[in-house]
């Protein structure tokens, strides 16, 4: 719209932005203060000691656990999703619509709802570990991934594939040289959603991981700040920042793709 942005609107917006980021002040003031006491105050010292603590020992190990779980889940979801979404998008399989509707319903399923059976299955098959978390998260993620990828593949014109076939391209070449590059934005979105979803995931690893060095950062942070008493706030805040950074970083890296892909998420429902 072309109505002039009034000064009042700008001030209101700026005010809101300040309110929105203000809770971060405490996090940053404490993380860079080696003598942190968890109070909201201007630090008398400045240093990176807390970050040193947050990357060593158990904490450092938890960082790698999170990376393994998040990257593993995202990659597995995307690979499994792509190899099923392409045929789903192109072939007229009997019962396809029924299957797609099942996916829509499954996607609405609250993950808490299948937690108990999931736990039992993992316990029986000895998968109460990281691999189990990756598989479980992929299972929960897949309806969403499949639907989204199918929608993106639907937008790739089939004429291009016909042309490539006439030129002598094989199925593999058609998929890797035409379909995948053209739906890059969609794949990036799906990967991003799966990655951050798994990176943030708390409930599943809380139930699946039983020992401290198997915790991902989410559970590690919860365990650390749940313990009352002598809390090392400097360490916790530095750890929080390290934990939050990849999720935020990945978003800004993929941002351009995200905006294209995001419209698809909304409209297709």
């Amino acid at each position: 719209m072309d109505n002039q942005p009034s000064r009042l609107t700008a001030i209101a917006l700026a005010f809101m932005a300040v309110i929105w980021v203000s809770p971060f002040s405490w996090l940053i003031l404490n993380a860079f203060n080696p003598l942190s006491t968890g109070q909201l105050e201007i630090p008398k010292a400045f240093g990176f000691d807390n970050f040193g603590l947050a990357v060593s020992g158990n904490a450092g190990r938890q960082f790698f656990n999170s990376i393994i779980i998040a990257a593993g889940t995202a990659t597995l979801s995307v690979v499994v999703g792509i190899s099923a979404a392409y045929p789903l998008s192109r072939l007229r399989i009997p019962g396809r619509n029924a299957f797609l509707w099942t996916l829509v319903l499954l996607r609405m399923l609250p993950s808490a709802g299948v937690l108990v059976p999931l736990y039992f299955a993992a316990q029986r098959s000895g998968l109460l570990n990281q691999l189990g978390v990756i598989v479980a998260l992929t299972i929960l993620n897949l309806p969403f991934t499949l639907l989204l990828l199918k929608n993106f593949f639907d937008t790739v014109p089939i004429e291009l594939e016909e042309a490539a076939y006439v030129e002598g391209a094989s199925l593999l070449q058609i998929v890797t040289k035409i379909v995948l590059p053209m739906s890059r934005a969609g794949i990036a979105v799906v990967w991003f959603f799966s990655f951050t979803g798994a990176w943030n995931e708390f409930l599943l690893p809380l139930i699946f991981a039983r020992v401290q060095d198997a915790f991902p950062m989410s559970v590690g942070l919860y365990a650390a700040f749940g313990q009352q008493g002598a809390i090392n706030y400097g360490f916790l805040t530095a750890f929080s920042i390290l934990y939050a950074a990849p999720a935020i970083g990945v978003y800004f890296l993929l941002r351009r793709n995200m905006n294209t892909g995001f419209a698809g998420v909304g409209v297709k429902g």
């Binding site: 809770p23 971060f24 405490w26 951050t196 708390f202 934990y243």
Partner: peptide, 10 residues
Amino acid sequence: LLPDIVAAFL
């Protein structure tokens, strides 16, 4: 974008 647990902490 902030992980849930960090948001809770914050």
